[in-house]
């Protein structure tokens, strides 16, 4: 019982597909930047700016918007997953910090309808 060559090919293909799997679930459309906190959602303009999220979240977090992209620049959460996510710009991209209950994501137009079409 040894690993076969086709196994390695399939495993490599599966690892490549990891990067595209997200696209199955995310729609396309005009993007807008949304900040989700415990208190609700807030739209953020795409102007270059640094936001201090201490008031909204109660945590030492800094959100940076630059050149149509956004990222969480600093955070006091332990795993730093949101910081390591880096820039988010495409539809459905998100930087999420679960311990601080904060997420920044790019929402696209047809996101909140939930349905593709309704026939009457």
């Amino acid at each position: 019982m040894k690993i076969k060559a086709a196994d390695i090919v399939v495993i490599v293909l599966l690892f490549i597909s990891v990067f595209f799997i997200k696209n199955l679930f995310t729609p396309s459309g005009a993007p807008s930047l949304v900040l989700v906190t415990e208190n609700g959602e807030k739209n953020i303009p795409f102007h270059n700016h640094l936001y201090d999220l201490r008031e909204e979240t109660g945590h030492a977090m800094i959100l940076e918007v630059k050149d149509g992209r956004a990222r969480i620049k600093e955070s006091d959460c332990p795993a730093q997953i949101c910081v390591l996510t880096g820039w988010v710009s495409a539809c459905g991209d998100a930087a999420v910090c679960i311990p601080n209950k904060v997420a920044v994501y790019v929402r696209c137009e047809d996101d909140d309808k939930g349905l593709d079409a309704i026939s009457r």
Partner: peptide
Amino acid sequence: GILYIQSPAIYGLLPYFAAVST
């Protein structure tokens, strides 16, 4: 995503989880 969280933001975490899971 369908039943509980209902926000596309969770799919941002999917690549990390998918890589570790694979």
